[in-house]
Amino acid sequence: MNTKLNVTTRYLLTDQLKTMGQSFLWLLAVFFGLPFIYRILTGFRFENYSIVSALNNLGLGIMFALFMFVFQSLTYDYFKLFIQNGISRTTYWLSRIYAIIIISFIGELLCALYSYGFSAPTRGMTTHQMLDQTAYMLYADWLGSNVWLNLLASMFFMWIFYIGCGLLGMAVGSLLALFNKHTQRILIMVIPILGVFALGMLISLTSPNTPKFMQSSGFENFLKFMIGYPLHGQALSGNFNPIMPIVSMIVGCGITGGLSLIFYKRLHLKN
């Protein structure tokens, strides 16, 4: 890694971990503070409130995935700082990729610690039972009965997933950064609406209520392939093939990363 790439990656890592940490603390304050205030306002009923159960309901993984998307979408402010300091667009992009990989790894470690080190014991669950409650539940038994092996695979799976969230954020953020604020607002409103419509349309194509000539099993089969649906035998939760979604996510990461590189190369200082 050359010096500039090293410095830029270190800066991004430090700044993003710091900002993410601060945002997380704010969320915790809101998460715990609001019910507390509500209880004070509605009659001081503290006895039903459990901090442990509130901590168990945090949804740390989803929160981290959202953080990854949102923080990696922040593009222009870093671009301004880096171009002022003689950092090229490609170095900025590459350092962002490194930062995403490292932050996702740290985030997944913390999420795993939270799930299996805190949440599972306080709920009286075994590691395997906890694994069955996570986003990896469809694949939790694929590597056999060794729970640690499956746990490791789930961590790898989630790591790739968080990287994907970050790269998607990068692509969206850098695309928006190419436009002025007015166009950005329009895009932010229009793209999700179009996305929901497109998704709805695709789902309707697989619905049995859709007229036959419009039905398509291709999309359904594609989705099944992507999530590792067993080709033969019973489709039992835990026995889906994680290779398919992992490969799908890696391909998705490649596409979003490539798109973001195209957008990063076109970044420019706005008036």
């Binding site: 500039k4 700082l81 171009i83 002022q84 003689g86 950092i87 200082l269």
Partner: peptide, 20 residues
């Protein structure tokens, strides 16, 4: 263009503020 080494040889102090 997109060249760290070349960009590292110059510094532009501009009217616009690019710092946090």
């Amino acid at each position: 263009h997109d060249n760290d080494r070349a960009l590292g040889k110059l510094f532009l102090m501009s009217e616009v503020d690019l710092y946090s």
